[in-house]
Amino acid sequence: MTGSAVSDQATALPLVWDVADLEPRVAELLDAKQRRVSRGRYDAKSADDVTALLEGLLQARGERDFSLHEVHRMAGGASKEQFAFKLRRGDDVERMVLRLDPPESIVETCRYREAEVFAAMARHGVPTPSTRFLDGDGTHLGAPGIVTSFVSGVTSPPVDSTLISGVGTSFTAEWRKLLAPQFIDTLTLIHGADWQSASLPHFTAPTAHPHQAALWQVNWWSRIWRDDQVDPYPLITLAERWMRERLPETPANSADLVLLHGDFRTGNFMFDPDTGRFSAVLDWELAHIGDFHEDLGWILQRLFAGPAEDGRVLACNLIEREELIQRYEEATGRTVNPRTLAFYEVLAAFKCAVMNLGTGYSAAARGHNHQDVLLSFLSPVGHVFLGEIATIIEREAAL
């Protein structure tokens, strides 16, 4: 059923099946993406291409007497094309990073929102990159992009090996002792930010009814699945129905409604390799306003977990599940609802299954992403998340 069809019948449908109820900016992004799917194959930009685009943007922003140096593609970037460079103004030289949208990404997100959340979090003491230049609609860069400060640090200890997107990062007990408290403290800071007084014009809070925070997320990712699926998977259909029948409540006036990171985990924070001190939280593109359980559900995904030396399973290879919940409750004064958390654990696995089995695979097949080989490689990982969905649903059915 299409969104327009549901919109025409919305008053006659139960709330849970109003699939057209989406955060407005998210709906705009998904509609714009659908208009791009008929484009031909995309050729990844060269350093010379990016240099010329950056020069145009900086000139449009009033920069004069500057030069660009050492423009080069950064490793990784399954979502956005990323380039590091140095900007020289007289004797001053600053390292910066450009994040640029390809025609299709494994996640469709907004550079305006990214800049807004950087500013909101910086005011609240969360370490983030700083926006230097913004081209949110792609007027000068040819695609939406953001230029940020360059943050020093590592995402894993220098002696450890890391697989794609932070998966497989392993910490010793000594590193966990340094990083786990900062992980909890930073999540607490993020969820404590006063989003109501922040300047977030491209965000909308789900305050129309208590189920809207959960419904917007189910509608967001089920819409993406309808748009991008290559092959049908009955378990994805089952998961969507399971979530719609169990939408948790998050009252609009509740402290449970917070500004979420959306992808908070090992691999998305940086720290000093000598001291272990956090230097930045990265990858804010999935940030939105919603229920705090959502970030916890994401952190607890099995794919991000790892074993301790004694065989215990640790969330993000940092902390045991129950300890994470206990320390979060102590730090925030909130109470974690087990049923609500289970809902958001299913949602987290659902999102990742959609990304890998739908969006990533279809974008690679159409040649619309600079990392088509990587996205094809990641597609089978979606089955890990299908297994996680089945495990959680079976666990909840046994209660």
Score class of each variant (00 low, 15 high):
residue 4 S to C: 12
residue 10 A to N: 00
residue 12 A to H: 06
residue 13 L to P: 01
residue 19 V to E: 06
residue 37 V to T: 10
residue 42 Y to M: 07
residue 44 A to C: 01
residue 44 A to S: 09
residue 52 A to M: 06
residue 55 E to P: 14
residue 59 Q to S: 15
residue 64 R to M: 10
residue 70 E to Y: 07
residue 71 V to P: 07
residue 72 H to E: 14
residue 77 G to I: 03
residue 80 K to N: 14
residue 104 E to C: 11
residue 105 S to W: 01
residue 116 E to F: 09
residue 126 V to S: 09
residue 127 P to N: 10
residue 128 T to R: 11
residue 140 H to W: 09
residue 141 L to F: 00
residue 153 G to S: 12
residue 155 T to N: 14
residue 160 D to T: 15
residue 171 F to I: 04
residue 171 F to L: 08
residue 177 K to N: 09
residue 183 F to D: 10
residue 192 G to Y: 04
residue 194 D to F: 12
residue 207 T to F: 03
residue 212 Q to D: 13
residue 213 A to M: 06
residue 214 A to W: 04
residue 215 L to N: 00
residue 220 W to D: 08
residue 221 W to I: 06
residue 239 A to Y: 03
residue 240 E to G: 05
residue 256 D to W: 05
residue 260 L to F: 14
residue 262 G to P: 10
residue 269 F to C: 06
residue 273 P to C: 11
residue 292 F to C: 05
residue 296 L to A: 03
residue 300 L to V: 04
residue 301 Q to S: 07
residue 305 A to T: 12
residue 317 N to D: 13
residue 320 E to T: 01
residue 322 E to R: 02
residue 323 E to T: 10
residue 333 G to D: 06
residue 333 G to L: 14
residue 334 R to S: 11
residue 340 T to Q: 05
residue 349 A to C: 12
residue 354 V to M: 03
residue 356 N to E: 04
residue 357 L to N: 11
residue 358 G to P: 03
residue 359 T to E: 05
residue 371 Q to R: 14
residue 377 F to P: 05
residue 379 S to Y: 00
residue 385 F to S: 08
